[in-house]
Amino acid sequence: MKSGKSWAWVTFILGAAYFFIPLIATMEFSMRMKRGEYSFEAYRVVLGDPRFQESFTFSVVAAVFTIILGVLLVVPTAYWIRLRLPQLRPVVEFVTLLPLVIPAIVIVFGYIRMYGSNSPLPFLSSDIGTSALLVIGYATLALPYMYRAVDTGLRTIDVRTLTEAAQILGAGWTTIISRVILPNVLIAVLSGAFLTFAIVIGEFTMASLLNRPAFGPYLQNIGANRAYEPAALAIIAFVITWGCMSVIQVLSRFAPKSANRPN
């Protein structure tokens, strides 16, 4: 029993070392910009760089629109599949997994061919159109995470009975989705939203090939030309991602409790 516990600690310490040593090393390196002393100079340079602010703002705005698009697309779809078309669930799950197996570069070349200036839908003929196409692409990349998060959320509530209870009280579909279903899967939606946010913030391929001023290409550019700033950026990106995860954890404590499963 005691040796089992020791092994558990050894495994934990090895795992933690594997995870934290590179992180600490990166952090340590990022603070050695000024010779002979530790400082946050690299962070100051990065955060003060107007290109950082522009690209980060662009990616945050793109992430917000991607989340809105994802929620509008996924919540009604997952709800309808659970309610009326459960036999289609395996098909939809397969489709939502495709972005994991089809490389982003294939998707983006498909977009370039489909939505060029000669296309009936010439997204690429304007900046705003290209940005919209980028958001659509991001929503596709985030689909596996968003769909699974929402579907898991829907699994925790009795979708059919709640829908019928709302219907018999006079509610139409918009009311049912906005006042009954969405609030009860809100935490799941937020989980999907933060995962989407993390994906969009770091995405490089699509933004680069569609030539949009996003944070991913900026990260790559800095990484190729500077020494200490990329390490500082890596830490910043890591903090943002972990911040998102922490917010999910905090919000999940406020999830509405199910009537049948109080805990």
Partner: peptide, 19 residues
Amino acid sequence: KPNQRNVGMVFQAYALFPN
């Protein structure tokens, strides 16, 4: 449709809105 009938219903599983 059910929402046009002005009928009240109580379900076996309560079906109260948890939120």
